[in-house]
């Protein structure tokens, strides 16, 4: 019994004379808490929560919109990129084709030019040959005339030289002798 009594004494004994219990309720503090809290609630509701929450939702909407916009822009860009890729490959194909055509054309042109030049060359050779021949015959003819002239001149000269008076007399005489015989 003693033990229990002392234990109760220990539990309920207070350290100091004046200090109250933490469980004491002061009505004044209740009143001031109500006043303070309600005042705080009203002030903060007006100056803080309304503008801040509005700004927050405004910003959230802004971010959401921006994200959506960015998403859309990205999709557009991807589409554009794909289109560009297709265009690029088409252009490359075209370019390849054009180059191919150009090469073909060049080849054709080359053979044609070569052919033409060959033909021309042959013609030129033919021309040159006939010209040479013509010149040859011309030169031959000229030479022939000249040779005849020279021969006639030489004959004339010879004749003139051989047919002087004595010789002619002698020749006539001979002829006459022959005739007498």
């Amino acid at each position: 019994m003693n033990t229990i009594g002392y234990l109760l004494l220990l539990v309920f004994s207070e350290g100091g004379e004046k200090s109250g219990s933490p469980l004491d309720v002061n009505p004044g503090v209740i009143l001031w808490t109500v006043v303070t809290f309600v005042l705080l609630l009203l002030i903060l509701k007006k100056i803080a929560w309304k503008p801040i929450l509005n700004s927050l939702s405004e910003r959230e909407n802004f971010i959401k919109d921006s994200l959506e916009k960015a998403d859309k822009a990205q999709k557009d860009a991807e589409k554009l990129l794909a289109e560009n890729k297709v265009n690029l490959s088409k252009a490359e194909e075209d370019a390849q084709k054009i180059i191919e055509q150009g090469r073909e054309l060049a080849e054709k042109l080359k053979t044609q030019i070569l052919e033409e030049s060959k033909v021309q060359a042959r013609k030129m050779i033919l021309d040159a040959t006939s010209e040479i021949e013509r010149k040859n015959s011309e030169a031959f003819n000229t030479l022939k005339g000249q040779v005849a002239d020279i021969a006639v001149n030489a004959v004339e000269k010879i004749l003139r030289e051989t047919l002087d008076k004595d010789k002619q007399v002698k020749l006539v005489n001979k002829y006459l002798d022959d005739l007498k015989n």
């Binding site: 009505p27 004044g28 503090v29 001031w32 808490t33 303070t36 705080l40 002030i43 903060l44 100056i47």
Partner: peptide, 24 residues
């Protein structure tokens, strides 16, 4: 009713002032 200002009331007011100034 005893509505004296106590230490805790003062600190509640301090909290009020801090909050109002901060959120302003």
């Amino acid at each position: 009713i005893d509505i004296s200002i106590t230490k805790h009331v003062v600190f509640m007011w301090l909290a009020l002032v801090i909050l109002v100034v901060t959120f302003l």
